[in-house]
């Protein structure tokens, strides 16, 4: 499985390079990143950091102001599909900190298209949720970090 993933990642990056002239540089960069951030054990949800710009999140003491901001953003951009404490269109964020790594959560929020294509956990979630796509709401990294802080209050 591991080998297969690395192989497919390589094929993907070769295709990217070959067809690169028609892609925007920005797009190419993300695709390369996608190839290089495949984790050593993507099937272990707690060690899988997902695919996207977020490599390392250090969680300090809970920051309540930040969590309040995060809740606001969540309500605005996410709540049409996610209810905090129950399954709706997508899964409930309650308890997510015990199910996924912080990096995976933020990458899923920021980079949903690539996550559901290349990350095995996200891919399985898409299937489990009847192929309802996780919408890309163009959330910034800073906003995603605040949402993560909000999720920490939902234990």
């Amino acid at each position: 499985m591991k080998a297969l993933l690395i192989q497919s990642a390589m094929v993907f990056s070769i295709v990217t390079v070959l067809s690169g002239c028609s892609q925007s540089p920005e797009k190419r960069q993300t695709a390369d990143k996608a190839a290089s951030t495949i984790q050593t054990d993507p099937n272990d949800p707690m060690s899988n950091k997902g695919i996207g710009p977020v490599k390392e999140v250090v969680l300090g003491e809970p920051d309540h102001a930040m969590a309040a901001d995060g809740e606001k953003i969540f309500k605005q951009l996410c709540s049409a599909c996610h209810k905090p404490e129950e399954k709706f269109i997508g899964p409930a964020p309650k308890g997510i900190m015990t199910r996924r790594s912080p990096e995976w959560i933020m990458n899923m929020i920021i980079n949903p298209e690539e996550m559901v294509k290349y990350d095995p956990v996200a891919k399985q979630l898409l299937i489990d949720y009847n192929l309802a796509p996780m919408a890309n709401q163009n959330v910034t990294e800073e906003q995603a970090r605040k949402i993560l802080e909000y999720f920490r209050t939902l234990e």
Binding site: L77, A80, A135, N136, Q137, N138
Partner: peptide, 8 residues
């Protein structure tokens, strides 16, 4: 339309 992405 609550979407915040291109072409949706």
């Amino acid at each position: 339309n609550l979407e915040q992405d291109w072409d949706v």
